[in-house]
C-alpha cells in the first residue's frame, strides 16, 4: 500500500501552529513536574529510587533467572533453544555430554553441566522465556544488576538457580492440556 503524502496547508507550512502546540505540551509537563512535584517517581512510590525501592509493575522484564520446580529440582533440560534464540548471544549452555550428568528429576533426561548468562550482554528481551519448553527460565523483577568486574557479571548455573527460586505454580504441560481441551470445543470468539 502506498500512502500519498498530503500536501501541507498554508498554516502547516508556516510551522507556527506546530511550534505553539509543541510549547503548550512541553509547558504543561514542565509545570506539572517542577511546581506540582508530580513525576513518575512520585506517582509509583513514596520517594526517589536509591533510598526508596522502586515498585516494579507487573509484566516488567528484568533479569532472566533459572527456576526450580516444587521439589527443588532443576527444570532446565539443556535443550539449548534459549541459547539459539538469544539475540545478543548472552546465554552459553554446556550440555552434560560425556560427563553423564543425569537430571535430578525423574521426568527429564538431562540437565546442563553449566549454564551461563552474561548479564552485560543480556538485553532483557524475554525470547528465552518465550522459547523455553520447560518453563525453566523466567524474566524476573531484578532491574539493578551491578558488579565491579566483567567476570562478576557472568552469572553461572548455581547463581541463576539460587536467584531464580522455586515456582510451582507454573506448570506448562498442564496449561497445554487445558489449551488443547479448550480448542476441542471450538470456542468461536466474535
Amino acid at each position: 500500500m502506498i500512502v500519498q503524502r498530503k500536501p501541507l496547508t498554508f498554516w502547516e507550512r508556516l510551522y507556527l501552529p506546530a511550534i505553539a502546540g509543541g510549547f503548550k505540551v512541553t509547558w504543561k509537563h514542565f509545570r506539572r513536574t517542577l511546581f506540582g512535584g508530580d513525576n513518575a517517581a512520585k506517582q509509583t512510590s513514596k520517594g526517589y529510587y536509591p533510598e526508596v525501592p522502586w515498585t516494579v509493575a507487573d509484566g516488567y522484564r528484568g533479569a532472566p533467572y533459572l527456576l526450580k520446580d516444587q521439589d527443588g529440582n532443576t527444570k532446565c533440560v539443556s535443550c539449548q533453544l534459549c541459547e539459539f534464540v538469544c539475540p545478543p548471544k548472552a546465554i552459553k549452555i554446556t550440555p552434560p555430554g560425556d560427563s553423564g550428568l543425569k537430571a535430578d528429576r525423574s521426568n527429564a533426561e538431562k540437565m546442563p553441566l553449566e549454564f551461563e548468562i552474561n548479564m552485560l550482554r543480556c538485553i532483557f528481551c524475554g525470547f528465552c522465556q518465550e522459547v523455553c519448553p520447560e518453563e525453566a527460565i523466567f524474566l524476573q523483577k531484578d532491574y539493578s544488576l551491578t558488579g565491579l568486574t566483567r567476570s562478576e557479571m557472568i552469572y553461572d548455573k548455581e547463581k541463576l538457580l539460587a536467584l531464580g527460586g522455586t515456582n510451582a505454580g507454573i506448570q506448562k504441560w498442564k496449561h497445554k492440556l487445558e489449551e488443547a481441551k479448550v480448542q476441542e470445543t471450538f470456542p468461536v470468539k466474535l
Partner: peptide
C-alpha cells in the same frame, strides 16, 4: 534538568 522536567522526570 529542563529536559527531565519536560519528560516528567527529576
Amino acid at each position: 534538568k529542563i529536559s527531565a522536567f519536560i519528560q516528567d522526570r527529576v
